[in-house]
């Protein structure tokens, strides 16, 4: 964990731009990323650009490294002892694996929503307020109430829970829990939201709810979503990247990928021949 956060701001201003990324609309750029779990190589030479205010979908067969890549983007892999990341990943042109980068700050800017809803065993209110509180974004009291309300509203959950904010978040339904987790992520005003199969534990109605939500959030956030569901990728994303056996095979506009895949592995996957 890089603790060296003393001169963070200056460091960010002064750090040299990562090569090959003049395009300002690329929020995140990954260059030659290799990831190893102990000696096992999970990702090979990934090069991928994530554009700002767009939804990028990552698709591919199980075990191909989608989650691994996603977790690289906010350095959640740091919490796994045996995991090692090589290459460069830049957020706004700043290498996030640079020594001066602080994971706390990075993860505040790049939020994450997990496959299984994981509300904290606290009240709904405290679930949302937790992030803003630890980061000092809002004072306790009316200011925090406002943050909680607006986050829940943006996550489309306010109407359902506004009368039961003091009840535990774990008492909600699966779909509500997932939206709670999204609201929790929004509450710290991230720039990017990473979502790892956010709908896989949900029924179609809850899924539709979340998909609408993702579409709305796109205007304010950059979103990267992992999904196994082709239709979902087609519905919510503007860009799609296809992963296979640890490689990024193809990345293009979603429409292109689904109508006119360049690589035959991509074609095989989206037409359901394997995966």
């Amino acid at each position: 964990m890089s603790m060296d956060n003393i001169t963070l701001t200056t460091a960010i201003r002064q750090s040299p731009a990562v090569r090959g990324m003049p395009n300002i609309s690329n929020k995140i750029t990954a260059r030659d990323v290799n990831v190893y779990y102990a000696t096992k190589r999970a990702l090979k030479e990934i090069n991928l650009d994530i554009e700002e205010h767009r939804v990028t979908a990552l698709i591919g067969p199980s075990g191909c490294g989608k989650s691994t890549f996603l977790r690289c983007l906010n350095r959640m892999n740091d919490t796994i002892d045996i995991c090692r990341v090589e290459g460069q990943i830049a957020l706004d042109g700043q290498d996030i694996y640079a020594r001066v980068i602080d994971t706390v700050q990075l993860r505040a800017r790049v939020g994450m929503v997990f496959q299984k809803p994981n509300p904290f065993p606290k009240s709904i209110y405290d679930n949302i307020a937790y992030g803003p509180r630890i980061h000092g974004l809002a004072q306790r009291g009316p200011e925090m109430d406002e943050v909680v309300r607006s986050s829940l509203e943006r996550a489309g959950l306010w109407g359902e829970v506004k009368d039961r904010l003091k009840e535990p978040g774990t008492g909600l339904s699966g779909g509500q829990q997932q939206r709670l987790c999204i609201a929790r992520a929004i509450a710290v005003s991230p720039e990017v939201i990473l979502m790892d199969e956010p709908c896989s534990a949900l029924d179609p109605i809850a899924t539709a709810h979340i998909e609408e939500l993702i579409d709305e959030l796109r205007t304010s956030y950059t979103i990267v979503i992992v999904t196994h569901n082709m239709q979902q990728a087609a519905r919510v994303s503007q860009k799609t990247a296809f992963f296979h056996l640890g490689e990024m095979v193809e990345c293009n506009d979603t429409e292109e990928i689904f109508t006119n895949p360049r690589d035959e592995r991509t074609q095989g996957y989206i037409t359901g021949r394997y995966g």
Binding site: T79, Q105, K116, N118, I134, V188
Partner: peptide
């Protein structure tokens, strides 16, 4: 305590 809860907290930028 499930790792998912820790991940959720780290994912928000908690120390």
């Amino acid at each position: 305590v499930p790792q998912a809860l820790r991940d959720g907290s780290y994912g928000l930028g908690a120390t």
